[in-house]
Simulated scan of single mutants.
Amino acid sequence: MFPITALYAALCGLLVLALAFNVVRYRFGRGISLGDGGDARITRAVRAHGNAVEYIPLALILIGLLEGNNANAWALHLYGALLVLGRVAHAWGMTGPGSEVNNFRKLGIIATWTVFLAASVHLLVVAVAY
């Protein structure tokens, strides 16, 4: 029923799963069951996963509401692709080499916030026109 939203939800679901796996991998590798044990890599992995879980649901809700209101498919694909690419860039920036504030994290933040802004304004226009 919502094939465009479903596509990006599936891709985001795989990303969240990969990020969760990364947390577990670090914890098992360091023998830390809960928390981060003061390990900076675990902290970054936990925050990369948490950040994705914090941002992705609302973005998908916005895209889904737009799709349910027959918004332009190209716009929906743009929002979805930007969301996925932004979240991947942010996760890489959080967990990859040199994971202090870097260009991948910045790109991910900008891409995600652009989706929020554009999709929210788009949805406001749709809602007001209704």
Rank of each mutant, 00 (worst) to 15 (best):
A127F: 08
D39P: 04
G35I: 05
Y55E: 04
A111K: 00
H77I: 09
E54M: 10
Y79W: 09
A20P: 00
V128Y: 08
L123H: 04
L14C: 08
G93H: 10
A9L: 09
V16M: 08
L11H: 01
R27G: 10
F28Q: 15
A127V: 12
G86N: 07
G35Y: 11
H122K: 08
L65T: 09
L58E: 01
A48M: 07
G108F: 01
V126I: 14
N70W: 07
V16I: 13
G29N: 10
W92D: 06
G93M: 09
V125R: 05
P97H: 08
A45K: 10
I32E: 04
L66G: 11
V23C: 03
R25K: 12
A118Y: 01
G86D: 00
W113C: 10
R30K: 15
Y79A: 14
L11F: 02
A59N: 03
A111C: 15
A89Q: 08
R105I: 01
Y26P: 05
F116E: 14
G37D: 06
L62P: 00
A9Q: 03
R47C: 04
A48Y: 08
F104S: 12
A118M: 11
R25P: 00
K106W: 06
V46Y: 00
N22C: 03
V101H: 13
A9S: 15
L82V: 14
A73E: 10
H49R: 11
G13V: 00
L82Y: 02
R41T: 15
Y130V: 12
R44D: 11
N22D: 05
T112Y: 14
I61T: 10
L83D: 03
E100L: 00
F21D: 05
L14R: 08
L124F: 08
A20H: 06
L76E: 03
I61E: 00
I109T: 11
L17A: 15
V16F: 07
G13F: 07
W74T: 06
G96M: 04
N72R: 12
L123E: 08
N72G: 11
I32M: 01
L124Y: 02
T43Q: 15
Y55G: 02
G64L: 01
F104T: 08
V24K: 12
R30H: 13
A111S: 14
A127T: 12
L34D: 11
A118E: 02
A20K: 07
L76S: 05
G35L: 02
N102A: 12
H90A: 14
N72I: 09
Y8C: 00
Y130M: 15
L62C: 05
T114F: 09
L65V: 09
R41E: 13
A59E: 04
G98T: 06
T112H: 14
V126P: 06
L76A: 03
A119N: 11
G13R: 02
Y26M: 12
V101K: 14
R27Y: 05
W74V: 06
V84E: 01
A40I: 15
I42L: 06
G98S: 12
T5E: 03
L19E: 01
K106Q: 09
A48L: 09
L85D: 07
N103W: 15
I61D: 01
S33T: 15
F28I: 13
G80S: 04
L117T: 15
L76K: 05
A81T: 15
L58R: 06
L19T: 02
L117P: 05
G108V: 07
V16A: 13
G35F: 10
L7A: 04
E100V: 05
P57W: 06
V16C: 06
